[in-house]
Nucleic acid binder design. Structure first.
Lengths: 207, 207
DNA sequence: GTCGTATCGATACAAGTGTATCGATTGGAG
DNA sequence: CTCCAATCGATACACTTGTATCGATACGAC
């Protein structure tokens, strides 16, 4: 008897989150309101209000949706035996952060908005901390494998290297997101190459 | 006859900007309004309105004030003949980005808020682009000097190295700003050391 | 002293906000 | 078909926002 009626609620929640992402990317989180999001999603404000209850819940849902997108993208870069070398995988993953198309640029702007909010709202910081933890774990595995393969300069502190890579990830997209729309990304591409070279220099794979 | 009357307007503008910085650091740019800033500064809303005219002008002034603070801090790290080595200077500058006290943490949060806005508002992006240009120039000089001193691994692309350092700067403070208040900064310190080592490895100063 | 004016705090106003609540609608259960 | 509950769009409400404008005030010139 208590079956859902007409619409797929989860699907609509996802569409509302997508609408929020579009507004956040275009005008910033400041211009995200229940009404503007509803309009962007082609719904009535009441619908959004009913689906999420509170604006904070809406923002949290949208944040998790955005994070899921990032993790999906990142998980596609497989590094390991029989796959990409550590250097190539790292380069691919870092270059993949650059806003080379409209979609990617929008994503980056959304992150930027949420990160700023996380600096001030612990609820959002916690969600990002979970993402950090998972990223760190993945990087730790990749670095450990690279070490075994002899791709790293000997004597490196692996934990420190992981932290450095985390920093690089943040630095790259943050540097990219504030570039003028017509600016070249070549400088950042060069930086990625330099980073990969600096980190893997000295190993037998060098050159 | 047209002499200023009672108060030092420039001084008060700076105090208002400081009040804005406090609010932005504590609650984010969302909670910055002419009224809240005026209250934080101990002024009437009318005073702030008169001094800045529009809220956008107020924000731009506050952004430039914040940037001046950063540049003042950075310019204190002198690298060159008879001063710090490139490696030590770089390490000092990067470690100096970490929010080791309340004041520094507040500054970082303010940057974070303004950077998010710059991703969406070209007016703010332009101001940050000026800062980038000056930073790039300073880094270029330091890297050039390091090269002459043989502190760098041979055969490095200096322009790429400069871009990498720019990315590192952004990555470090962005990684730091979203850590829980009681979190240790040791991981980031280790990342800084790893970065300095990776960038300067191979030179005669090594070890 | 008196005058003139720059500056003061306060108020007015239209717009937009989050949220609570409404009666109408609608489609499945019986 | 009839009923009923879930869902709909719309409205109400109390706030906050940016900005324009006000008469009062208080100092400098004379």
């Amino acid at each position: 008897m208590l079956v859902p009626r007409y619409v797929d609620k989860d699907e609509r929640r996802r569409q509302v989150a997508a609408a929020l992402h579009r507004i956040a990317a275009r005008e910033g989180l400041d211009n995200v309101s229940i009404r503007t999001v509803a309009a962007e999603a082609g719904l009535s404000a009441g619908a959004v209000q009913r689906d999420f209850g509170t604006k904070d819940a809406l923002l949290h849902f949208a944040l998790r949706e955005a994070l899921a997108g990032v993790e999906r993208r990142f998980s596609e870069v497989r590094v390991g035996p029989g796959r990409l070398s550590f250097a190539d995988g790292l380069r691919t993953a870092l270059l993949d952060l650059l806003p080379t198309d409209e979609q990617r640029l929008a994503e980056t702007r959304v992150w930027s908005a949420f990160y700023a909010r996380a600096a001030v709202d612990p609820g959002f910081a916690d969600v990002l901390a979970e993402l950090d933890a998972r990223s760190r774990e993945a990087l730790r595995a990749a670095v450990g494998w690279a070490e075994e393969e002899g791709e790293l300069a000997p004597g490196q502190d692996l934990d420190a290297l992981v932290e450095l890579l985390m920093v690089l990830v943040d630095g790259i997209w943050l540097s990219a997101v504030r570039l003028p729309r017509d600016a070249s990304l070549d400088g950042l591409r060069a930086a990625v190459d330099a980073a990969v070279a600096a980190v893997t220099a000295g190993g037998p794979h060098r050159g």
